[in-house]
């Protein structure tokens, strides 16, 4: 714990209200308090993003279904909805736990323990960043989603495809692919051109009309990259700070400090906050 240094006049034994002056009513050092308030303000930034996300999502007539969008796994495996991102979440949770352990070791003034657990945390953070990099690469490179284009569309009516996946007419006798309202599709690219497959509506007021697959709401791609990117940026800067503080701890700077390993505690707060934000990013982008 931080040393409870008070102001330099003599402190009498005080029995009054915790809010009286001359002592730290919050029993926390100013550094930790400032970190808390910084996190509070950062939470408002993220809230701004997430609330804007909510408003834009509500205002769109359709929205891509996340378990369709996020169903790939490294190694070309598809059809595993949400599994990869669950792995990412685990990584972050585990790194949070190792961070707690580092703080605990810090409280015991155990230099080696701090360094060991912090290295594990850094590895966890880097792992998370790596996973995110893969996810982005897959979405951008493979599925051609970008901040301006969202190839993930949603059917609003049931129907039957008139073309196969390559955009060619079905061969005679082939079974045509059908779909139901609410189903998602991904518009592929062939030789640099988008293939928006043609289909015939088989239900509702538009029954019988021919339509082409349409791109999904643009805001989806932009919001996804923007918010996960902003979170990723927090993870990245967190990793950088972790490395700095880990090196400091290893070199023994904190051994001599009066407040000991408080820096570890502060970066711990930050790191948990990153995890906390992920809980909500995970919630709104992947689960709902």
């Amino acid at each position: 714990m931080a040393t409870d240094t008070a102001l330099d006049h003599d402190i009498e034994v005080q029995s009054g209200d915790a809010w009286d002056g001359g002592k730290k009513p919050f029993k926390a050092s100013y550094g930790k308090l400032m970190m808390w308030y910084f996190l509070l303000s950062d939470a408002f930034t993220f809230s701004g993003f997430l609330i804007a996300y909510g408003a834009l999502r509500i205002s769109s007539p359709t929205w891509p279904v996340p378990d369709f969008v996020f169903q790939t796994f490294p190694g070309g495996i598809t059809g595993w909805p949400l599994i990869f991102v669950t792995v990412m979440s685990f990584l972050l949770i585990v790194s949070s736990v190792t961070m707690v352990r580092a703080v605990q070791e810090g409280a015991r003034e155990n230099r080696k323990g701090v360094v060991f657990w912090m290295i594990l945390t850094i590895i966890g953070g880097l792992g998370f960043l790596g996973c995110q990099a893969w996810e982005w690469t897959n979405l951008i490179g493979h599925e051609h989603m970008s901040v301006t284009t969202n190839p993930f569309g949603t059917h609003v009516e049931s129907g039957v495809y008139l073309e196969d996946a390559n955009g060619d007419a079905y061969a005679a006798g082939a079974t045509k692919e059908t779909f139901e309202a609410g189903e998602s599709y991904l518009i592929h690219k062939h030789n640099g051109d988008w293939v928006q497959r043609e289909y015939q509506v088989t239900s509702g007021t538009d029954e019988g009309t021919r339509m082409n697959q349409e791109f999904g709401p643009k805001a989806f791609g932009a919001l996804f990259f923007f918010i996960t990117g902003f979170h990723g940026f927090h993870v990245f800067s967190g990793v950088v700070f972790l490395i700095i503080i880990m090196l400091n701890a290893a070199s023994g700077v904190y051994v001599e400090r009066k407040n000991g390993y408080e820096m570890v505690e502060k970066i711990g707060l930050y790191w948990h906050f990153v995890d906390l934000v992920w809980v909500f990013v995970f919630l709104v982008f992947y689960l709902l």
């Binding site: 915790a18 009513p25 949070s96 707690v100 711990g268 707060l269 906050f273 809980v279």
Partner: peptide, 14 residues
């Protein structure tokens, strides 16, 4: 996360 990992549980109510 806030209460356990970030030790909020151990802070003063204020």
């Amino acid at each position: 996360i806030i209460y356990e990992f970030m030790h909020m549980r151990y802070e003063v109510p204020g």
